[in-house]
């Protein structure tokens, strides 16, 4: 039987930061941030901004190449000013995410079924990437899991990887995920049982500065309207949009146009045949 049901417990813990009601939490990806001493350069410049409170709950991570800090509720967020200060600190600004500062505290765990989308190798980082689809309908989202630096995550990742060793694409797995907003339904999620076999091709578009979840949602909404598109996923961490089409040889021009009309620049388009890839995977099994 192709569909097995490996039971997986996956713990994705989150750091929480106390914040005043209404404050925003800003997370910036900073290119070139590679040593602890450099993080203070950034902190010093960011703290000069009007929107940054006296105690901004500053967190810098060399491992992730990120810095996060609170933003005052009564000051409009100024992304350009943040980028300018990052440059003055001697770094190159990357993606930027702004969320309600207290939203992380509301994030809770849920346990539910997920679908294995793929287990692939990231040649650049020499690590195995596990892509899972959890939730359904509007709650549906793709989790891309990589070995994390933190020991507790590494163990969970290693367990998950071992359990998925014999799993096939589209197998169901049971996961416990920490980090989903509290207003999402708990318990088993009824998944939309999509099957890769019915897709003709997967179009992968690299999109410049697909910086936040809201941006991803906007792009996905636009792309879904394009004729022949069956399914869309976006990964704003990797600046990629994955589109599954009915056709084996899709015309990528309308897809590119849809994304560019949404205000984003497409830097690279790659088309791969889902049918061939899926057939190969099953043949290998």
């Amino acid at each position: 039987m192709l569909c097995k049901l490996p039971t997986i417990l996956l713990l994705l813990t989150l750091m929480t930061a106390p914040a005043l009601a209404g404050e925003k939490r800003v997370t910036v990806h900073v290119k070139g941030l590679a040593c602890p001493f450099c993080t203070y350069n950034l902190e010093k410049r960011i703290k000069t901004l009007d929107g940054v409170p006296d105690k901004p709950n500053w967190r810098a991570s060399v491992e992730k190449g990120t810095a996060s800090f609170d933003w005052k509720a009564d000051v409009p967020f100024d992304e350009d000013a943040v980028r300018e200060q990052i440059r003055k600190a001697g770094f190159t600004p990357g993606k930027m995410e702004v969320a309600d500062a207290d939203s992380r505290a509301k994030e809770q765990a849920y346990q539910g079924k997920a679908h294995l989308i793929e287990v692939s190798n990231d040649q650049d980082k020499k690590q195995t990437v596990i892509a899972l689809q959890v939730g359904a309908g509007e709650n549906r989202r793709t989790l891309t899991l990589r070995p994390a630096e933190r020991a507790d995550r590494q163990e969970s990742y290693a367990t998950l990887k071992a359990r998925l060793k014999d799993a096939a694409t589209n197998d169901s797995v049971l996961v416990t995920v920490y980090g989903l907003p509290a207003d999402k339904p708990k318990g088993d999620i009824i998944l939309h049982r999509w099957s890769p076999q019915r897709f003709g091709a997967e179009v992968i578009l690299n999109v410049d500065e697909l910086a936040c979840e809201r941006c991803s949602t906007g792009v996905m909404r636009t792309v879904r309207e394009v004729k022949g598109v069956l399914h869309v996923e976006s990964d704003h961490d990797e600046d990629r949009v994955h589109i599954w089409t009915q056709s084996h040889e899709p015309d990528t021009a309308p897809l590119r146009k849809a994304i560019e009309d949404a205000g984003f620049k497409v830097t690279h388009v790659h088309v791969k045949s889902v049918k061939d890839e899926d057939a190969n995977k099953h043949k290998a099994k």
Binding site: H29, K31, G32, L33, V62, G90, F91, T92, G94
Partner: peptide
């Protein structure tokens, strides 16, 4: 005077 700078995630 720094005349060249190439920043990537985690690399400079």
């Amino acid at each position: 005077y720094r005349f060249y700078q190439d920043d990537q995630p985690g690399i400079t």
